[in-house]
Amino acid sequence: MRLLFSLFSGLLFGAGLFISGMTDTTKVQGWLDIFGAWDPTLAFVLGGAIIPMFFAWRLSTGRRPVTAAQFPPPPPVKIDRRLAIGSLLFGAGWGLAGLCPGPAIASLGYGGVFHWVFFGAMLVGMGLTPYILRNFPRLSGA
């Protein structure tokens, strides 16, 4: 049952990323090109995605998910160095190639070999992060 929900969620997510234009790197860079020929299309993607999620969160109080004991706890409020520095690095890479993690996976099947190069480097970066945190303890704000 859990697997079916996961798969179904992934299918919807993949379909949405594909038809919305999030896997088109030119479109993403156009949306980030605030200082050039700005393309506002992706604002509709983020806005559209937030609508169902807003209701999903709203209706969750006092209820429970189908296969789990409870919904995720309220988010932590602490803004730390990790969050700020990580988001800045992520944004820099997102602008450079026009891909964020979801679309990077959604485009692997049809986008060709250059998508696998980006995806491979992203996995390496993810694997390196625990080592970076261990060697730069100040990143965690400790």
């Binding site: 990790r82 969050l83 700020a84 520095i85 990580g86 988001s87 800045l88 690095l89 992520f90 944004g91 820099a92 890479g93 997102w94 450079l96 190639a97 891909l99 964020c100 993690p101 990077a104 190069v117 980006f118 995806f119 491979g120 480097a121 992203m122 996995l123 390496v124 970066g125 993810m126 694997g127 390196l128 992060t129 970076i132 945190l133 990143l139």
Partner: peptide, 14 residues
Amino acid sequence: VAAGLLVGIGTRLA
């Protein structure tokens, strides 16, 4: 490669 590394490290830090 540079963008992939930045996205991988950045999202895991954040």
